[in-house]
């Protein structure tokens, strides 16, 4: 029995030692907001936060999550109130097909948690492992910058 905390909730689930966090989230816990585009750590679609740091769920084994706090896209909003990053992604069209969005949001959240006032180059570097084929990244970088301003204003 694996005990893990996801988005503040404790889950107990059976999981094979060979199941990755990606499979556990999507297939055991029904949290399908985390996507997959390669399953070998090359696309960033399955990025989640493990104790606040972005990792690729497709390459995380059960042993690494025992006792850790996992944050997925489903855990970003506060009830029905969107996280400022989500608000900015919505407003600026930073999510088109939406398939990379979960991973983008979580990589961006980790950046802003650590660096509240990033430059555009820092934003680009933080998102460099998350492939997006729709946006050309410009609106995503804008959205992260806008969310940073919103969050700073709230401080």
């Amino acid at each position: 029995m694996l005990r893990l905390r996801v988005n503040g909730e404790t889950h107990e689930t059976l999981a094979e030692s060979s199941e990755t966090l990606l499979e556990i989230l999507r297939e055991r816990l029904g949290l399908t907001g985390t996507k997959h585009g390669c399953e070998v750590g090359e696309c960033g679609a399955c990025t989640v936060l493990l104790d606040g740091a972005p990792v690729l769920a497709c390459l995380v084994l059960p042993d690494q999550i025992e006792g850790a706090e996992v944050t997925t896209v489903e855990g970003l909003a506060d009830g029905s109130a969107l996280h400022p990053l989500q608000e900015a992604f919505v407003a600026l069209g930073a999510s088109q097909c939406g398939y990379c969005t979960a991973g983008m949001l979580l990589s961006a959240k980790a950046l802003l948690d650590e660096q509240p006032d990033p430059t555009r180059d820092e934003i680009r570097a933080a998102l460099a492992g998350n492939v997006c084929r729709c946006t050309g990244y410009a609106s995503i970088v804008d959205a992260v910058a806008q969310a940073a301003r919103t969050l700073q204003g709230a401080r």
Binding site: L50, P54, L56, V60, S107
Partner: peptide, 9 residues
């Protein structure tokens, strides 16, 4: 080395 998420692991 690689990307931010992979450097985290």
């Amino acid at each position: 080395v690689s990307t931010p998420a992979l450097r985290n692991t």
